[in-house]
Design a protein around this nucleic acid. Structure first.
Lengths: 110, 110
DNA sequence: ATAACATATGAATGGCCATTCATATTTATA
DNA sequence: TATAAATATGAATGGCCATTCATATGTTAT
């Protein structure tokens, strides 16, 4: 297991905003403004995330007039689908831990 | 896409230490001391991570004497294998972005 | 009962980074 | 050329949480 690769992979994909963006790009290419409207993330924030996703090789971009169109790179499509599928299938169990409610994570839940 | 589920999933799996632990548990159950020696993570830190992984339903535990033995829960095995496979297959590309070297992530790489 | 071993718990903190706000750049149109 | 639209960039910051250290708990053996 390559540590840098693992860290980079999860850095790119493990943030909820970036994962939402990747999920939105699964089926079709999107302009920045499309990503903004479909994810609800503010424009400059989206742009920041796109830089990150570009750097990590998850997406590619091309220009069309004043718009920039982003598309998911092919190799990542299956793993993103798999992860979405897994989370969806087991969401009941995953949610049951209610981490969001905890004030501190590293604590036994009674 | 359930936001809480996605966040919880990546919280549990997206940290390098926890992912290493899960990877180490893929093939066999392990005592805490085994996890310590195979991952290099310090003991109390491992215990903290195990609480987290227990809470999120990724592992189960049983006692044997003074030892505690952790095992991966069955449903997560495939997705962890998939992710490891993906990272391994594309590590060259993933590493090429060299995020670790950057002083700031959200910046175009020339 | 005490020592040694295995693991868990608690509190504290320091670094990272997601977000925000302000502004720059690029392109198109009037 | 001036304006507007779309996107990118830069700097700043506040919160989260991984780690560490110290210590507690539990278990076995002597």
């Amino acid at each position: 297991m390559d540590k840098i690769a693992v860290k980079t992979f999860f850095f790119a994909i493990g943030d909820y905003s970036r994962f939402s963006i990747l999920a939105a790009l699964l089926d079709k290419e999107l302009r920045v403004s499309d990503i903004v409207s479909s994810t609800g993330i503010e424009q400059s924030n989206v742009s920041h995330h796109m830089v990150c996703l570009l750097n990590c090789g998850f997406v590619s971009a091309r220009k069309e007039g004043k718009e920039r169109i982003y598309g998911l790179n092919g190799e990542v499509r299956p793993i993103i689908r798999d992860i979405i599928g897994h989370i969806d299938k087991y969401k009941k169990d995953i949610i049951s831990c209610n981490i969001a409610d905890k004030d501190y994570i590293y604590r036994a839940i009674e």
